[in-house]
Amino acid sequence: MLVKKDYTGVYVFAEQREGVIQSVALELIGKARELADVLEEKVVAIFPGKGITDQCQTLIAHGADDVICIDHPELEFYLTEQYAQVVDQVVKAFRPSILLFGATTIGRDLAPRLSARLETGLTADCTKLEISETRELMMTRPAFGGNLMATIMCTEHRPQMSTVRPGVMQKLPADPNRQGTIIPFEPKFDKARFKVEMLENVKEDKGMVDIAEAKILVSGGRGVGNQEGFDRLRDLAEVLGAEVSSSRAMVDAGIIGHDRQVGQTGKTVRPDLYLALGISGAIQHLAGMEESDFIVAVNKDKFAPIFQVADLGIVGDVNKIVPLLTERLKGMIK
């Protein structure tokens, strides 16, 4: 029988790669802080890795009260079973009420494995987390390709687990004077279960930029047409000091890589300015960008759904407007 009061604290799986704390970990700590303040409980970071002990303070500076530091040679690279054993042991020893993961290729591999091991619920890709009047976690997420929102609860099992995509929550500014407790944790590995061997970990220079970090995005869709049209977007982006991104149509056409795709199956972005050029605004796309501060849309079709979320809409031909805009801005910014 579950005794809920035995489970307290808002825990965050603090993801690092090659010893670098991932932005999503700090974003989750920011959100966890807010939830924990409502509950009057602690924010605790679970921080596995190799040679990472000296970085615990960063997690505290961004809002963690405690950091459970699991510094072990077996944890140099993420492998499912190694990490699952560690987090499983931490959860069983500390009994968190809430446990959050980044919805990355690591978090989305680890969290479901753990939810089955811990026999508890897991809600993927939450865009909103709140505490209910009954002190339960309310997890809201898009479903049906972003067509529908659902609020999910896990009231009879602990911990209440969810994943959150990078860029959705906001980190707190670092306070280097913030005090917290570092708790070293010694894992007990069952190495017989380590069946997957990493042969190679390759980082590709895909010209990769994290579009979720960009302040301005110049984003192109089907209306841009072809590679040449997209090159004009790159010119505009250069003048604005922006990054280029796209809807799924451009990725499917092979004009741009998947890492620059905005939307339900791509990335969630919230830049200061989002220029939607030749993007009609399928719901899947809107789901990834509608939180942007200011949205300018240019599209030929005046009934395109993108105009329903745009702060400024222009009905017209992107391939005429973009070069002209680039020229004018060049003159001004010089």
Binding site: E119, L122, T123, A150, T151, M153, C154, T155, E156
Partner: peptide
């Protein structure tokens, strides 16, 4: 373990 509390 999880239930949909509401959908909209």
């Amino acid at each position: 373990p999880t239930r949909v509390a509401k959908a909209f």
